[in-house]
Design a protein around this nucleic acid. Structure first.
Lengths: 195, 195
DNA sequence: AGGAAACCGGAGCGGTGCTCCAGTTGTCAA
DNA sequence: TTGACAACTGGAGCACCGCTCCGGTTTCCT
């Protein structure tokens, strides 16, 4: 009977597999930066000098690849929420965080649309990756509602949608990208209670 | 020398051509209603029982086909703006019209995105088709700003973008469609001056 | 050293948008 | 009525896409 060194623990991946995974990820970062989230996966495989099958084994879906690409960014944004909460008044923390979110959502073309689709697709790896970040935003929202700076009828999901929509606007029409800050201000004002 | 009956006037299209054009349009209405603005044009041609070449001659681009599909709707929305302006106070007219716009933008899946792209694509037939409607909305905006009900720093293009974005939210995440009215209210509040 | 499992890459399938052109058909002048 | 020609037709064809599947190779562990 063969001995399982640590039963249940996955065997470490082969060295060539790990190397290829990294190559794919690196290539994906470049290609997605150029072509957006709808980039051709064949192009990614080509740039990584790897077969298409290899790409699909490491990342069975497009979302899985994007998740790997964005994971760190999401983590940072979640941490950033806590930092902002500690650094200043709740309403300010929320506004700053949301604005940083719109900027982050513009990291790649098509990203706002991808994130939005993620909301309803519970199976997508991106859904899970977003969750912690969305919850961090939710905490900022609750704090700002606690001080009465934000209307109580605003839900976390409203925020996520609106902020993604702002990113989408800038993503779709370059001419509107420069109005991003202005539009952001308009929407933020709508979240505040009227005297 | 042959006589040109009315020189410069285009000769009437052949009967079969006109018939085929109508068949394509009818099929397109069905297929786009089912699959959205990104529907397969092959499917449209198939349903119209027409060759792909025929479809492309009558409508050289996807936008041209959509324009033909949406033209009447845009006209009605532009007229509706004038009717609302005559029927009630400017702020109410604007709010009602914008809400009808978000509903209209949800006529087909993907339509908000298509309309948004249209904004920067001056060549698209949809750009021209939207223009009159956008201008009608602009007039409502000016009137509502004249009475002080809407912030003066709101531009017509802001409105178009925000209202499209609301349509996009409902389009992307079915779960958010039911919050459409609520989100609309939030955004509208952001457009009003603070006391 | 050797064998098994993991991994690789690309051929292949069914789909897409779009072009191009040989063949057909409607129309209008003679 | 007929003939000729422009207008129109439809689908084959090209290059691309996402995704699957599998014969051959490579790595790792014993």
């Amino acid at each position: 009977m063969p001995i399982e060194p640590t039963p249940g623990a996955a065997r470490a991946p082969r060295a060539d597999a790990r190397r290829n995974r990294d190559r794919v990820l690196e290539a994906a970062a470049e290609v997605v930066a150029e072509q957006g989230t709808q980039a051709s996966l064949r192009d990614v495989a080509r740039r990584a000098e790897v077969g298409l099958g290899t790409l699909y084994r490491h990342f069975p879906t497009r979302d899985a690849l994007l998740e790997a690409l964005l994971h760190r960014r999401f983590e940072l944004l979640a941490e950033r929420a806590d930092a902002l909460a500690a650094a200043g008044p709740p309403e300010r923390a929320l506004a700053d965080w949301l604005y940083e979110f719109t900027l982050g959502a513009a990291a790649y073309h098509g990203l706002p649309a991808t994130l939005m689709a993620t909301l309803s697709d519970l199976e997508s790896p991106l859904h899970a990756a977003c969750l912690a970040m969305r919850q961090a935003g939710g905490r900022l929202l609750e704090a700002a509602q606690g001080t009465g700076d934000i209307r109580p009828d605003v839900a976390a999901v409203d925020l996520f949608a609106l902020v993604n929509a702002l990113g989408w606007i800038a993503d779709q029409a370059p001419s509107l990208a420069e109005r991003r800050e202005h539009l952001f201000g308009l929407v933020m004002d709508g979240l505040r209670p009227r005297e």
